[in-house]
Amino acid sequence: MSLPPSELLQALNWRYATKVFDGSRRIDAQTWAALEQTLVLSPSSYGLQPWKFLVITDPALRLQLRPHSWDQSQVTDCSHLVVFLRQQSIGAAELDRLIQWTSEVRSVPVEQLAFYREMMQKDLVDGPRSQQIERWTSNQVYISLGTFMTAAALLGVDTCPIEGFSPTDYDRILDLESSGYRSCVVCAAGYRQADDKYASLAKVRYRSTSLIERL
């Protein structure tokens, strides 16, 4: 499968962090189902998928979240609000879950995956990275955010990533405190309001010559 390079660049030039959503427009079910699958298909280190995605469409719940999102209107006006959650810790249970599921999906005996499990154990559970596991899981979540936003642009859906929010308050309102997951980043998705002035502003990006080096 391939996409013309011009179409990809056109979509990425079209997208921007939408400030004003058209509250009357909703993403249709087929398009949203595809976008949900882009979350599922997002890559992660080791394929461990240390995340969950809360899709919030309930207006009342979004009203509760808005004051803890710097009162940003995107939270209430977008079609779908996605809260990206990171796993709090990585231990034996998480490794065993992946190994077991890999065995089932690929019809491979668990014993043949022992080396892979040991590698993850040494790195994420016993190694130095275990001391920064929250940072590691957050990094993985941001990979899924990028995948989601790019896919949305290709489908003509607007997005706005939101870091301006209180994770502690989100965790409380969404009842995550005993779930093993924590709010990491938020993304609003929908369709831009026709008069959103930011839609027509030129992108401010440094020239590729100052960002890309070829060795």
Rank of each mutant, 00 (worst) to 15 (best):
M1D: 14
M1A: 13
S2M: 06
S2W: 04
L3N: 15
P4T: 10
S6K: 11
L8T: 09
L8C: 05
Q10R: 13
L12H: 03
N13I: 00
N13T: 06
W14D: 14
R15S: 07
Y16R: 05
A17W: 03
K19E: 09
G23V: 05
R26Y: 08
I27Q: 09
A29L: 01
A29C: 02
A29H: 11
Q30D: 15
A33V: 01
E36R: 08
Q37I: 00
T38C: 07
L39Y: 12
S42C: 00
P43W: 02
S44D: 01
S45P: 03
S45T: 04
S45N: 04
Y46P: 00
G47K: 08
Q49I: 02
K52E: 12
K52A: 07
I56T: 12
L61Q: 15
L63C: 08
L63P: 00
L63Q: 15
W70G: 05
T76G: 09
D77W: 01
C78F: 08
S79H: 12
Q87P: 08
Q87A: 10
Q88F: 05
Q88Y: 01
Q88R: 12
S89T: 13
S89P: 00
A93N: 12
E94A: 11
L95Q: 09
D96V: 01
R97T: 10
L98K: 15
L98H: 13
L98M: 14
I99F: 09
Q100W: 00
T102K: 06
V105I: 13
V108H: 11
V108T: 15
P109S: 08
V110T: 15
A114G: 10
Y116R: 10
R117F: 05
E118I: 03
M119A: 13
V125P: 11
V125Q: 10
D126I: 00
G127K: 04
P128T: 03
W136Q: 05
T137A: 00
T137S: 06
S138R: 07
Y142G: 05
L145Y: 05
L145Q: 06
G146N: 09
T147Q: 13
T147N: 15
T147L: 01
M149L: 05
T150M: 06
T150C: 06
A151Q: 06
A151D: 09
A152H: 05
A153H: 11
L154H: 14
V157C: 09
I162C: 04
I162Q: 02
E163C: 02
E163L: 03
G164Q: 06
G164T: 04
F165Y: 11
F165W: 08
D169Y: 09
I173V: 10
L174H: 11
E177C: 00
S183Q: 06
C184P: 01
V185L: 04
C187Y: 03
A189F: 03
A189E: 00
Q193V: 01
A199N: 08
L201R: 15
K203L: 03
V204R: 14
R205F: 03
Y206T: 04
Y206W: 06
T209V: 01
S210Y: 07
L211G: 00
E213T: 14
R214Q: 14
